[in-house]
Amino acid sequence: MKNLNRRDFFKSAALGVSLTVLGTSKAKGSDKMLSDDRLGILVDTDVCVGCRHCEWACRVAHNLPTPDLDNYSDNSVFKEYRRPDAGSLTVVNKFENEKNPLLPIHVKVQCMHCERPACVSACIVGALTKGDDGSVVWDDDKCIGCRYCMVACPFQIPTYDYDRSIDPHIRKCDLCTDRRKNDELPACVNICPNEALLFGKRDAVLAVAKTRVKRKSDVYVNHIYGEHEVGGTSWMYIARKSFDKLNMPHLAANPAPGISESIQHGIFAYFVPPVTLYALLGTIMWITKRRSGDDDELISDEEEKGKGGKL
């Protein structure tokens, strides 16, 4: 079912692109050239041991309440699948490894920092922006809390403070922008004991990912998740199991905001369609008014009504 959905979606996506005649797919925002120096992080799920230190470090770095690090050794949190929420920007989940049950697969979840982010395209006030370094960052001062980014995100990442009336935040990984300003690594990358999170320039990281998948072809499935998904993401994953089974959505290579933006730009191509429509309607109005033989019809009509009202 899921699979069928997807195929149909792509089919309709293709249809959409061809339908938007005026679209010319000149999506201004998303055609911005991406910097060659943009960042990437590789999650090697085979190296990750599920210590969840990244969760702890992330909370500390973002001033979110967190229990003591020693409490993180508790294995029972893995019993249920978790997602990031208002209190944690990243979580690690455990998946069974049927080939060797003693080596379960741990998968960290956080914002993927898409190359062509849907949330940035969607945000009504431009509170989400894609930086030159590749990070997708949320602006507290702009956000109006409409949660359209959450609707748009193909990875279901942005979360919202549903329990706050004043100053609710959209929360998601910001690639530790503040820490990096001080020449520090992102908190999760920094604390990871195994360097299961490999941080560097996206090209270099991708090269390492390719090497590892090739070198240990008997271990890894031949798929670098995030290399092509929704036009590529900053975070990438390699694993010994199909990503479908690791609760990672199956996505195509076309950028998430693609069709939406081309429709949008089709309707609004340099304001030509609205202005044309305006002119057209004006002409019709003028013609019909003349046909009725009275140039001042509308005004006199209003006046007439006015008189009626005064009765």
Binding site: V47, L185, V189, V205, V208
Partner: peptide
């Protein structure tokens, strides 16, 4: 950990 050549893991890792 922050280094040029990331093909080899850092010492901690």
């Amino acid at each position: 950990r922050s280094r040029e050549d990331i093909t080899v893991p850092d010492l901690k890792a």
